[in-house]
Design a protein around this nucleic acid. Structure first.
Lengths: 197, 197
DNA sequence: AAAATAGGAATGAACGTTCATTCCCAAATT
DNA sequence: AATTTGGGAATGAACGTTCATTCCTATTTT
C-alpha cells in the first residue's frame, strides 16, 4: 500500500471524466479510458459494474467536490441575502473556470438521458434539507420571507441564478468570450438583479 | 409526385431528431432511425454523407424553424427595447414549450463536441448581421446606446437573457415544475431586470 | 501458500456504411 | 393506346470495424 491502492478507482474516474469532457460519450471507449488511467481494461470492471455505473459515479464524485468547495470555508456564516447569493453564484462560476473539464462533463451528462434519470432519482429521494440543494433552498426562502427576493417557485429562482452562469461558461470555454474578474462580477450581480424583489 | 418524393429526407430528419432527443446519441442507430422514418437504411445515405452530416443537418433545419417562428409575423416592427426583448425571449420559451423534442435535441447537440464544432464554424463565418444572431445583436446594441441596457459584452447579455429560459425549460420537461402562462411571463420579465441598466 | 487484485487478449454483439439489386415512373417507341 | 425502355431513387443483406464485457493468467498482498 505505497503509492497505489484503490486510487486506481480515482484514476479511472479522472480519465473517464477527461475523455468524455473532451470527446463526448462517443469518444470514450473503455480501452481509451484504461489507457489514460494507466490501468488494465479489466480493472475498470473491478470498481464499476458497467460503463453506465462508471458515468453516474463520475457525476456523484463531481457533485461532492463542488459542494465541498462552495460550502467549505465557513461560507455560510452570515451576511445579507445578496452577499450570500453572490458568494455561491460567484463560487460556482469560479469553480468551473478552474475546472473546465468538470464543466463540460456536467453539461453533457445533464443534457443526456443519464441526467434525466439522475434528476428523477433525486426528486423521488429526500426533499433534501441537506447539501447544496438544501442550503440554496434556505437562502432563497429566507430572501423571499424578508421581501428581498421575488416570490417565485424555487426552480425559477434557480434558473435565474445559475442559468446565465452555465450559459456564459460554455461561451468562455469555447473561446467566444474571455471572462475576467470584473466581467464575472458584473454577471453574478446582474443575476441578483433578476431575482431581487 | 403525390404524397411522397424527397420528403423522405424530412422524414429521416424528423425520425433522427426524435430518437436522439428521447434516447441520446447512443440510442439512435441508423437502423432505428430508418425504421421510424419508414425508410430503408440505405436511403439515409442518399441524403447525408454520413451520420455526422445528418446530425448537423438536423441542427440547421431546427435553427431555420426557430428563426422563422421568432421573426415571422412582422415581429420586428417597433416598440420599446423591453417590449421587443420580451417578445423574443417569450417566443423562444413558447417555441420550446410547444416542441419539447426540439429542445432536448438542441441541448444535447450544443453540449457535445458537435456543438463546439458548430459554434466554431459560426464564429469563423460571417459576423452575421443577418438572421437571429444579427437581429438580437441590433436589439441589444440599440438598448445599450439608449442607456436602457447594461453595457456588457454581447455574450454576457445573451447568457442573462437565454440562460434562464433554457435552464427552466429543462426542469419543465423533466417535470420538476409546470410552467404556465403567468410563470413564463414572470420569468422573462425577471430576465429583463437582469439586463436593464 | 493462499487470497486478492491487476492485466489484457479473447469474445460476441452492435454499429455505421456499402453496394448489388429492385422498384418506380416518365419518356420514347410502336 | 399500348408497350418498351432508361435511369434515378430506394432498399436491406452483407461487411468490416469497434465496442463493452468476460475470463483466465500473472502479480502482488496477506
Amino acid at each position: 500500500m505505497k503509492i497505489t491502492k484503490a486510487d486506481k478507482k480515482a484514476a479511472v474516474i479522472r480519465a473517464a471524466l477527461e475523455l468524455i469532457a473532451e470527446r463526448g460519450f462517443h469518444g470514450a471507449p473503455a480501452a481509451n479510458i484504461a489507457a489514460r488511467a494507466r490501468v488494465g481494461v479489466g480493472t475498470i470492471y473491478r470498481y464499476f459494474e458497467n460503463k453506465d455505473a462508471l458515468i453516474v459515479g463520475i457525476m456523484h464524485d463531481l457533485e461532492a467536490r463542488v459542494a465541498a468547495r462552495l460550502f467549505d470555508e465557513a461560507y455560510l456564516k452570515d451576511g445579507t441575502a445578496r452577499e450570500r447569493f453572490l458568494h455561491i453564484s460567484g463560487g460556482l462560476l469560479n469553480y468551473y473556470m478552474d475546472n473546465p473539464l468538470d464543466f463540460r462533463f456536467v453539461e453533457q451528462f445533464m443534457n443526456s438521458p443519464y441526467g434525466a434519470a439522475f434528476c428523477r432519482d433525486k426528486i423521488f429521494g429526500e426533499p433534501s434539507t441537506e447539501g447544496v440543494a438544501g442550503a440554496l433552498r434556505r437562502l432563497f426562502e429566507d430572501g423571499m420571507d424578508g421581501g428581498l427576493v421575488k416570490p417565485l417557485p424555487l426552480p425559477v429562482l434557480f434558473s435565474l441564478s445559475f442559468g446565465p452562469v452555465m450559459f456564459i461558461m460554455r461561451d468562455h470555454i469555447l473561446g467566444l468570450i474571455t471572462l475576467d474578474e470584473p466581467l464575472m462580477d458584473a454577471t453574478v450581480k446582474a443575476c441578483w438583479d433578476a431575482i431581487k424583489a
